[in-house]
């Protein structure tokens, strides 16, 4: 659905996008994850043809962006990071205006606006001026404005920045509904929980490059990060701890009566529990700590995502 090949974009000496390759399949929610300045927005701007790549090619729904930019633009909807709405227009007038830019006929457009307003849950506020909306409501209208021409691809650039939890959940529901309706979505964010919840596949960007891409499972495999199990005992003596370490070749950290053990949970947990029973070490609590995206990101980039 979206094919980007060897994309490069520089601003002066800064290589904002460096040899980026993407292959996003129809119906996917593709997460573009990276810290600020990683090159996510530049990539989105290249795909939306707002910026011209220094080299490389992009194909959207089989349409070459370089040769048919207007046609390609008709097949995508873009939700910019900024709330790009006219404050002194009502939500309805904003949507009417943006719909007209895509030459949607008036009757269809009006029906479409009503449908979208119901989808985002703002049908009762459609005649209110945007400046009277909360941040979360504005974000939802910001998404609605990208859907009026029924695009096949939706680019969402950090659509939940500064949004309250209630609106965020609503946005997630909207994204999932749209995806179920067949929309292919590129979703950039630096909130990992959003990517984990929404995205089928993820690309991790840093300093203009894609450093890893795949499903969460594939990324876990690419990363050295493993799962951990935290065992809390009623009591463990120094001798018992030394013996435990000798028995297993795992990396183990002790915090009071809790041992945090790097291991393969499926394979090793039963052996560890059997050892504890045999050696009269009473286990009070077991917690499985999965190798999440944050840990994978940290491992791959040596950076915190919110850096």
């Amino acid at each position: 659905m979206i094919q980007a090949t060897n994309l490069n974009k520089s601003f002066g000496t800064l290589k904002a996008v460096n040899q980026v390759n993407l292959n996003i399949k129809e119906g996917e929610i593709f997460g573009l994850l990276g810290p600020n300045g990683a090159g996510k927005s530049t990539t989105i701007n290249l795909i939306s043809s707002l910026l011209k790549a220094d080299s490389g090619s992009i194909s959207l729904n089989g349409i070459d962006l370089n040769t048919h930019p207007i046609l390609a633009k008709n097949s995508i909807g873009i939700v910019p990071q900024e709330i790009s709405l006219y404050d002194n227009f009502s939500a309805y007038d904003n949507l009417l205006f943006f719909g007209k830019l895509y030459k949607v006929d008036k009757t269809t457009l009006k029906q479409r606006i009503d449908e979208i307003l119901i989808l985002i849950g703002l049908e009762n506020r459609k005649n209110d001026l945007i400046k009277t909306y909360s941040g979360g409501m504005k974000r939802r209208i910001n998404i609605a404005a990208a859907l009026l021409h029924k695009p096949k691809i939706l680019l969402m650039d950090e659509p939940t920045v500064g949004v309250d939890p209630q609106s965020r959940n609503r946005i997630f529901e909207v994204v999932e509904t749209l995806n179920k309706q067949g929309l292919t979505i590129i979703y950039t964010t630096h909130y990992m929980e959003e990517v984990e919840r929404l995205c089928n596949r993820i690309a991790i960007m840093d300093t203009g490059k894609i450093i890893a891409q795949g499903t969460l499972k594939e990324l876990q495999e690419q990363s050295k990060t493993t799962e951990k199990v935290a065992l809390t005992f009623s009591a463990i003596s120094k001798e018992q701890f030394v013996a435990f370490k000798k028995a297993f070749a795992f990396e183990i950290q002790q915090i009071e009566n809790t041992l945090s053990i790097n291991c393969n949970i499926n394979k090793d947990l039963s052996t560890i529990l059997a050892y504890c029973t045999t050696n009269n070490i009473e286990v009070n609590d077991i917690k499985v700590l999965k190798a999440n995206l944050e840990a994978i990101f940290l491992d791959l980039t040596n950076k915190q995502l919110r850096d």
Partner: peptide, 14 residues
């Protein structure tokens, strides 16, 4: 400054 120019440029108008 408001970002609406960006949205106009995203649309298929010249």
């Amino acid at each position: 400054e408001a970002g609406t120019l960006k949205r106009l440029l995203y649309s298929p108008i010249r």
